[in-house]
């Protein structure tokens, strides 16, 4: 897949909860090219996270079409393989496993890839060095600062070399200075690894760092604007 091809194609996507009383997505349309960095913005309950969950294969839509990395998300049954291969998640709350060391946390997604323990460790160490945590590999997450934890989560998201990183409010639990560092790191990795970065945020200054800003309201795409960061 080259950079001119759409890695995400969503058409008239609908998703309801509570027997359809809550319409999280109500005719969403979106196309994202490979290697793009987009931010999805909108107020609480607008459907940002639902959209992210559909793209990541964590939830299935009720109607419409959604294709991610060439996979038809509406008909494919076994999405865990897709998630393992194509998607890297970065959550607002880093969601690291507390009893495992930093390096063991990064290795977690590789269990489904038939990688040997030795190669798992090698890959995890490489990534931890790239996020400047090479000296904290044996620490438990509880001993790390918020920013360091989020860097571990980013390393974990990249460990299987995914084509898309889905970041849900990645700076939401960080102070603004640490948040900037994390955003710079995400941008750097996006460029270096040519990975598509889809970031959900409600903070305008964070959203403005992307190449495109998608504004979502009532489960629909309200606007789609290119920023000055656009290539």
């Amino acid at each position: 897949m080259n950079n001119n091809e759409n890695i995400i194609e969503i058409k008239d996507l609908k998703k309801g909860y509570d027997n359809g009383k809550i319409k999280a997505l109500n005719g969403m349309n979106l196309k994202v090219k490979k290697g793009e960095f987009i931010s999805i913005m909108g107020p609480s309950g607008s459907g940002k996270s639902s959209l992210l969950n559909m793209i990541g294969g964590l939830d299935i839509a009720d109607e419409g079409t959604i294709k991610v990395a060439g996979i038809d998300m509406m008909t494919t049954k076994n999405l865990n393989k897709f998630r393992s291969k194509e998607i890297g998640f970065v959550f607002q709350m880093h969601n690291l496993i507390p009893n495992l060391s930093v390096v063991e946390n990064v290795e977690i997604p590789m269990y489904e890839t038939n990688t040997s323990s030795k190669d798992m460790r090698k890959r995890a160490l490489e990534l931890l060095k790239s996020v400047n945590l090479g000296d904290k590999i044996d620490q438990k997450p509880t001993k790390l600062s918020g920013g360091e934890r989020q860097r571990v989560a980013i390393a974990r998201a990249l460990v299987n070399k995914p084509s898309i990183i889905l970041a849900d409010e990645p700076t939401g639990s960080l102070d603004s200075k640490t948040g900037e560092v994390i955003l710079d790191l995400l941008k750097d990795l996006h460029k270096k690894e040519n990975v598509t970065l889809v970031m959900v945020t409600h903070e305008p200054y964070v959203g403005n760092m992307a190449e495109r800003i998608i504004t979502v309201l009532d489960g629909k795409c309200l606007s789609d604007n290119r920023t000055t960061n656009s290539k």
Binding site: L58, N80, R83, S84, F89, N95, I97, E112, N160
Partner: peptide, 16 residues
């Protein structure tokens, strides 16, 4: 529960 959610998100199969 949340940790199990993360494991599923990173691609772990139900059987694992």
């Amino acid at each position: 529960t949340r940790e199990i959610g993360v494991l599923k998100a990173v691609g772990w199969k139900n059987s694992r």
